[in-house]
C-alpha cells in the first residue's frame, strides 16, 4: 500500500527529472542563433523553437546558404526536427540599355513610316526623331505606333493636330 502512495510522487520526480534534462526551447534557440550568426552566409536567417521543432525563416542569398543553415542545426541537442522556411533573395533585375538605331537607317525607316502623311516633316539627329507639320487626330496613333517601333532614342512630337 505504501508503494501505491508513492507512485504520484515518483511520477512527479520523473517529470522534473526529464524536464530538467531536455534543453529548454529558449536555450536551443540561442545555441542555433549563435551558430547561424557565426557563418556570414547564414547570419541573416532567423529561428524559432517550439517544443524542439526549429523553424528557420528569413532571406538568404542562395540554395547553398539555405541548406547550410539547416545543416548547422542538425546535431544540436534537443532539436527534434527542422522546418526550413528560408526564402531566397531574388536576383537583381538586369538593366539592359535600350537599343538605339543609328541615324542613317533610322532616317530611312522614318521616311518609310511618314511617306503617306504629306503634312508630316521628320528629322533625325542623335537618335531623336523630331516631327513637325500637321496630322489628323485619327492618323496620329497609327503613325506614333510605327515610329515607336523603330528603336529611336526619343520622339519629339511637335505636330499640330488638324
Amino acid at each position: 500500500m505504501k508503494m501505491i502512495r508513492l507512485i504520484p510522487a515518483m511520477a512527479l520526480g520523473l517529470m522534473l527529472f526529464f524536464t530538467g534534462c531536455a534543453p529548454k526551447d529558449a536555450d536551443i534557440r540561442s545555441e542555433i542563433e549563435k551558430k547561424l550568426k557565426a557563418n556570414p552566409a547564414t547570419a541573416a536567417a532567423a529561428v524559432t523553437v517550439i517544443e524542439g521543432v526549429a523553424t528557420l525563416s528569413g532571406e538568404l542569398a542562395d540554395e547553398n546558404a539555405k541548406a547550410e543553415a539547416a545543416k548547422l542545426i542538425t546535431g544540436i541537442k534537443g532539436v527534434k526536427s527542422v522546418v526550413n522556411n528560408v526564402t531566397l533573395t531574388p536576383p537583381p533585375p538586369v538593366f539592359i540599355p535600350p537599343v538605339i538605331t543609328a541615324d542613317d537607317p533610322l532616317m530611312q525607316s522614318v521616311k518609310d513610316a511618314t511617306k503617306d502623311y504629306p503634312g508630316v516633316k521628320a528629322e533625325v539627329k542623335d537618335g531623336v526623331i523630331t516631327l513637325t507639320g500637321d496630322i489628323t487626330k485619327a492618323s496620329l496613333p497609327k503613325l506614333m505606333m510605327t515610329l515607336n517601333g523603330l528603336n529611336a532614342r526619343k520622339i519629339d512630337n511637335k505636330l499640330t493636330i488638324k
Partner: peptide, 18 residues
Amino acid sequence: YGQIDPNFTGGDLILDVK
C-alpha cells in the same frame, strides 16, 4: 498611353510593343 498623353507630345516614352 492615349489616355495619359492624348497627343503623344510628352517625348518621355518609347512604347515598343511588338
